[in-house]
Design a protein around this nucleic acid. Sequence first.
DNA 1: AGAATATATTAAAACGTTTCGATAAAACAA
DNA 2: TTGTTTTATCGAAACGTTTTAATATATTCT
Lengths: 340, 340
Amino acid sequence: MATTIKDIADKAGVSISTVSLVLNQKGYVAPVTKKKIQTIINDLNYRPLHSARKLATRQTGNFGFILWEGHFSEVEMFYSQVFLGMEYAARKNDYYILLTTVREGFDPREDLPRFLRYKDVDGVALAGRVPEPLIRYLDHQQIPFVLIDYEIPGENFNCIKIDNYNGAFRAVENLILSGRKHIAFVGGTFFHPSIKERYRGYREALEKHGLNHNNGNGYSYCENIETSRSIGEKGIMQLLEKYPEIDAIFSCNDTTALGVISGVHRMKKKIPQDIALFGFDDIPTAEFSTPKLSTIRVPKLEIGKEAYKLLYELIQHPKMAPQTRIISVDTVIRETSSSE
Amino acid sequence: MATTIKDIADKAGVSISTVSLVLNQKGYVAPVTKKKIQTIINDLNYRPLHSARKLATRQTGNFGFILWEGHFSEVEMFYSQVFLGMEYAARKNDYYILLTTVREGFDPREDLPRFLRYKDVDGVALAGRVPEPLIRYLDHQQIPFVLIDYEIPGENFNCIKIDNYNGAFRAVENLILSGRKHIAFVGGTFFHPSIKERYRGYREALEKHGLNHNNGNGYSYCENIETSRSIGEKGIMQLLEKYPEIDAIFSCNDTTALGVISGVHRMKKKIPQDIALFGFDDIPTAEFSTPKLSTIRVPKLEIGKEAYKLLYELIQHPKMAPQTRIISVDTVIRETSSSE
DNA sequence: AGAATATATTAAAACGTTTCGATAAAACAA
DNA sequence: TTGTTTTATCGAAACGTTTTAATATATTCT
C-alpha cells in the first residue's frame, strides 16, 4: 500500500514519534536524525494521510466559502475571483476551500451547508450578501468566520471590507474635475451596505464641490431590488426623462453600468460626449464594453487572500478580537469618462 | 465534546458495531433496535466524524475539479457553472468537490494540485482544455477521472461531451432557412476538439444546402490562439474586407460572438438586418448584449451533474469500461438571428 | 429430530497519525 | 562531586470510525 509514517520510521531506525516530530517541526530532534528522516521522506515521496492527521489533531484542514446562490450565477465573475484568491492563499498551508451556495430564503435547520452540518471546516468565509440567520448561527456555534464585502450594522464581526467610500468619492470627483456638473447616481438596493457607502461617497464628493441638487441627495435612482443590468437601463432612462441636464453618471457597480450604457444609448445620447460614466468593481467585462467602462478596480484576488489570512490567524489565536480589514481600490480610466 | 458513536451506543444499550451497521445500512439489525438507534441519533443530532470514517474506509469523500487557470479568469461563467452543477449533485452523497486551477505550462512534478499530491480525492473531473501531461499522470496513477468538454484524439477516456456537431449544424441551418446565403465561420484555435466539431457542423450544414464556397471550407477565420472577444472582432473585420457579401456569421462560441458584434458594428453594418449572427454556449452575457445574441444553449449545470454521476459510478465499479456521455443542446433564438 | 441457514449482536482489530509522559544521555551549575 | 536543566528519543494511549470473524439465537429444510 501507500507508504506510512511507520515505513519512514523503520527505514530511519527511529520511532514513529520522532518522525512525527520532524513532520510537525516540534520538540527536540537531533539535526543529524532530522536530516536523515527528511531524506527518506523525500526518497519515498511520503505524505502524511490527511484523514489520520485530522482525526488525531481534531482539525479539519478545510475552510468553507459560502456564497448566496444568486451571486454565483450572476454574469459577473466577482466572487469567483475572490474564491480563487482564497484558494491560492490556502495552498501555502495546505488548507482546502470548500465552496457552496445558499438559497435566498435560507433556513438554518434545512439548508445548512454540508460542511457545517458535519463540522467539516475550521472556519468559513461568507461572501457578499448572505442570509443573516446563517451569520447568527455561526456566531452562536462559535465557528470562526469572516464576512467579505458585507457587514451587519451595529455588530462587530470579522470582516474584509472594500474601500467603497473612497472609491466612490474618487470616481465622482474625477467626473467633476473633467468638467461635469450634473452627476447622477444609479444604483440598486441599499440593502447591501457597500452600496450605501458608495452612495455616501457620491454625495460627499458632490458636496465638496458645491454641486448639490435635490436637498443634497443628487440625482439618484435606487430601486429596492438587487442591482443589475436592467436596473441600470431602466434607472437612467427614468432619470434622463426627469432631468435631461444630466451629463455624468456614477453607477453603483459595473453590472449596473453596463445597463446604463444601453439605457443612455436608447435615449439617443452619446457616451462619453454627452454623458460620462463611471462604474465600480472592474469586472472583466468592463474592459470589453463599447465604449470601454471607466471604473474603480477592486482587487478581487487580494480580497480572497486577506480573507484567508484572517481566517487562518483566527484559528491560531481563537481569542483574537474581531477585526475589520479594508482593501483599497484603484481608479481605472477607460473610454466612458474621457474628457471631451 | 461532540457526541460520538459511543454515546449513541451507550444510550441505546447496544454495541458500537450495531450503531455503525445502522449508520451504513449494512448487515442485519432488528427493526426495533434500528428504530431506537435512529431516534437517539436524531435526538442528539449526531453525525459521524468524517475524518474517522475516512481513515477507516480509506476513502476521501472528495472529488477534485481541475480547471486550466485561463478558463477560470475568463469573462465567461461557463466552467464555474459546470462546477456548481457538480457541487449540487455531490450534495446527495455527501461528497465534497475541491476546486483548483492549473497553470498553462503544467509540470506534474511541480504543479500537481495539492489534493493529488496528498491523495485527498477519490477521483477528479477535468474541465476544458487541460494539460495533457496531467491527464497522462492520472491515467498512469490509476486515479479515476472524467474529462469535461475535452478529449484526447485516439484515446478512450471517460468523458462528458457536448453535442457540438449537432448544435453547430442546427445553428447554421437556422441561418440558412432564414434566407442567408453567405455564411461565415469565426473561431479560434482548433486545438480544442470542441471547436473542431463545431466547424465540422458548420461545413456540413452548408454542404447539405449547397452553399459551399472556397472548396467546401466556407468563409472561415481561424487563428491558432485561444478563442476570445478580440478574435471575434478582428476576425469578422478581416473577413468582411475580403468577402463583403457575407450576410450571416456562425461564431465558435458566445465570447467570440460578442467580439463579432463589435467588429460588425465597426464595419458599419447592422445586426441582424445586414448580417445575422449565431453564437454557441449561451453564456449569461449573451442575454444582455445589444442586440441580444442567438445561440446554442449548453446546459452547464447538467454537464456538472453528469460528470459527478459518472465519477461516482466509476468509484463504485472500478473496472467499468471508459464511457463517453453526450449532452444535447438547445437552440435559442434571440435578436441577432431574427429574420429580416 | 437434526442439520443447515438466516437473523441479530458484539468484541476486537485496524486505519495512520499526534501527543503526553517517561526515560536517558548530555550539558551545565553549584 | 551532585543536582538541575536541556536535549533527544520513544512507548503507548488516544482520536472515532468500519469491518471481520465469532457467537448466539431463531427459522427453515429434510
